[in-house]
Design a protein around this nucleic acid. Structure first.
Length: 254
DNA sequence: ATGGCAGTGCTTCACTGA
């Protein structure tokens, strides 16, 4: 079983690339972030023609998430239970017996901003909710755009980024708190090329110079960990014409 | 220190992203 997460930065623009990518791989589940579509505009027909079911949760202009799967998804949940949120950031469902949580974590903008305060509150609420989800569904995978670079080795220039958004001690503490509750960073279960990133700035020829961050992650529960056989970042879509600034991260389960 | 690139939606520039 293959699952993936991809921040597409507008599904309206990236739909052809998504369909191409789904056609090239045997991906069973893909969670999308930054669809930037209201629910009435979600391209479920095109995905259906490609052989995929979809669940979606969007809004105008910003955010928006979706869960695309070969097999039907059940017990669909939107956003964090018990956390009032105007922003569409989370979609969860059960597929083939695996509880899948797809999330677009808040960016945070700057450590001294209101958006950072929102990010901290969102992260606390997420963890509280995930503890319940994990108790109910031991086979749980949390994947998405975390907007957190967990360690200095996940940053192309850790000195320049020290204390900056995605790299603050507060954000990294939240990531470690997820690890402390039993989640495992699937990417680090395997030997990986140094300077592995999932996002590269559109500016400054960052992709060509491989200047990026690893901020898109796949975390698996303890019960799921023995089933993980691979986890990779697929850089190829970042080489497309008009690419997303993020690359997909893919996990393979037995 | 700044902006650089991209997407959206109307304010055809401002906002957000990371």
């Amino acid at each position: 079983m293959k699952l993936a997460t991809w921040n597409v930065n507008s599904l309206a623009v990236r739909l052809p690339q998504l369909l191409d990518w789904l056609g090239q791989h045997q991906t069973d589940v893909v969670v999308l972030q930054e669809t930037k579509l209201t629910d009435d505009k979600f391209p479920h027909e095109a995905l259906k023609e490609a052989g995929y079911h979809a669940q979606w949760f969007g809004q105008k202009t910003y955010n928006g998430v979706a869960l695309v799967s070969r097999e039907p998804a059940t017990d669909v949940a939107r956003n964090i239970f018990g956390f009032e949120d105007e922003q569409a950031r989370v979609i969860a469902a059960t597929v083939n017996g695996v509880r899948v949580v797809g999330a677009y974590f808040p960016n945070g903008q700057a450590p001294d901003s209101d958006k950072f305060v929102y990010k901290m509150g969102w992260l606390t609420a997420l963890r509280r909710w995930l503890a319940d989800e994990m108790a109910q569904h031991p086979q749980l995978v949390l994947m998405g755009d975390f907007n957190i670079a967990p360690e200095d080795r996940d940053v192309y220039d850790p000195v320049a980024w020290a204390g900056q958004i995605h790299c603050t001690p507060e954000e990294r503490a939240h990531f470690q708190a997820l690890i402390a509750m039993g989640f495992v960073d699937a990417f680090r279960l395997f030997e990986q090329p140094p300077k592995s990133w999932s996002w590269w700035d559109y500016r400054n020829l960052a992709f060509r110079k491989n200047q990026g961050l690893r901020i898109d992650h796949i975390l698996v529960s303890q019960a799921l960990k023995p089933r993980v056989t691979a986890c990779v970042i697929d850089k190829l879509p970042r080489k497309n014409e008009r690419p997303s600034d993020h690359a997909p991260v893919v996990i393979t389960l037995d």
